[in-house]
């Protein structure tokens, strides 16, 4: 008897994998970007299922919102929807697929072998697990220094992007 949650998980997993494959296969870069938005949205639903509401909302607004809009903007700016197919190394594609299958099988084998190692946690979560309040409390107590370093990282990225895209030809 399959539980409702497992059924829900499998349907969503199917959507996530199909949209990831669609991203990989689409010839048009715009379609790839839109497939990736769908993938990010389904992953956000997984975050909700895993009691991480704050991360889920951040996923939608940062990934599916900001990052993918930037991608779409650059694709349309460059007119790079259909990049020509110039495959200079003929054996690269079969080799890449073989390597990916090896990676998948190896990781799957490890997961299958370790399936009993992780204990099934059944205890109830504490109230408010993953809520913005709790994220903020942990972020500003245990992770205060990394959080501040993050702001410097974002500043560096911003300055870098401005310097790189500055048109030097006067």
């Amino acid at each position: 008897m399959m539980s409702l949650q497992l059924f829900f998980f499998l349907v969503l997993a199917l959507v996530a994998i199909t949209s990831a494959l669609g991203m990989l296969i689409s010839r048009n870069a715009i379609y790839s970007a839109l497939f990736l938005v769908l993938n990010f949205a389904t992953v956000a639903v997984f975050f909700l299922l895993l009691n991480a509401p704050f991360i889920a909302v951040a996923q939608v607004s940062v990934y599916a919102g900001a990052i993918m809009v930037l991608f779409l903007f650059v694709i349309m700016l460059l007119g790079a929807e259909r990049a020509g197919r110039t495959q200079s190394i003929p054996w690269q594609r079969p080799l890449a697929i073989a390597l990916a299958v090896v990676l998948l099988l190896e990781a799957g084998f490890i997961l299958y072998n370790q399936r009993g190692v992780l204990p099934l946690v059944t205890g109830d979560l504490q109230a408010g697990f993953g809520s913005p309040t709790q994220v903020g409390t942990v972020l500003f107590s245990d992770y205060l220094l990394p959080f501040e370093v993050t702001s410097v990282l974002l500043l560096v990225a911003m300055i870098g992007a401005i310097v790189l895209s500055k048109n030097e030809k006067k």
Partner: peptide, 13 residues
């Protein structure tokens, strides 16, 4: 997520 956002800004530039 923060690192990914920074990476995307620099990479697309």
């Amino acid at each position: 997520m923060t690192v990914a956002a920074a990476e995307v800004a620099i990479g697309l530039a």
